[in-house]
Design a protein around this nucleic acid. Sequence first.
DNA 1: GCGGAATGTTATAGACCATTACAATTCCCC
DNA 2: GGGGAATTGTAATGGTCTATAACATTCCGC
Lengths: 160, 160
Amino acid sequence: MLRVPSPYRPRVAAPIARVAGLDYGVLDELLGYQLRRAQVAMFLAFHAATRGEAITPPRFTALVLVGANPGIGQSTLGQVLGIARSGAMMMTDWMEERGLAERRRRPGDGRSWGVHLTARGEKLLALLKRRVAAEDRKRAAVLNSRERRELLRLLGKLAG
Amino acid sequence: MLRVPSPYRPRVAAPIARVAGLDYGVLDELLGYQLRRAQVAMFLAFHAATRGEAITPPRFTALVLVGANPGIGQSTLGQVLGIARSGAMMMTDWMEERGLAERRRRPGDGRSWGVHLTARGEKLLALLKRRVAAEDRKRAAVLNSRERRELLRLLGKLAG
DNA sequence: GCGGAATGTTATAGACCATTACAATTCCCC
DNA sequence: GGGGAATTGTAATGGTCTATAACATTCCGC
């Protein structure tokens, strides 16, 4: 059903190792550094969960957003992904080339296109959601549910 | 004293916006997504703190590590940065080209070089440490000190 | 209607990083 | 102590992601 995706190499291949006997200096007290470390660990889990699908976190995010907001514009997509409009366009191209989404003219605004998932996109998204959510929870199993909620809350405050 | 660094554009220019009225679906419950959002926010703060110095987070990390562990090898550097050996080499080249660090032969092992900060590297590092730590605390001011400690603890658990 | 804003698009360029292959050196085990 | 395996650093190459800039089309307010 789903075509074999093009080969894909994650941008980050290795976790940020904790080397014994090394002095980390100021890094241990910097939120930015610890955030990055945790994020790389979660990214590798994500990559494991989506193995074989050539899915990156931004691509997954885009699929979820289009799925939850049919007809979303590409500018909005870019804002939520934190990338420039041109990047949002390439992302949409990527989805369209693989038959996961399509552009449809928006009635009432001749400039913009709305992005919609195809049946195939819906199917892939459902699969990915299951896998990613499962892996996310598995990786986060070192936290109990109170800690997990607390972490989400603190991250939300930080991101503003 | 310090030369004007080469122009540098951050890889991420925009925060991950929170768009009102949009359905974020499963994203709000994924640690990976919230982690990424917070990390981008902190990265932009980092970028603001190091404005004009062409410093990236990996470069800052490398400087801190070399400063705290004089004579560290490039392989170890790569491990801690989570990049391949070839990348650690380019990082060392970068520091050396700017007169921030230098390679010195290691007695007892003819294969490896130890990386050491120069006086100029020490000076820049001291400046950056002050600025980055200040910005990190400023950005994290939305958290009280208990929350900040708790966040660091939870991130540490997650990163393993 | 007209100037400015917004949307999508194309082209271009740059930064970063992995992979692969290679040379020199050291380690380890027999 | 000798030889194959592992380690360290290096060089060359390629791919992916993203920004910037410039442009055409369309919308909007006056």
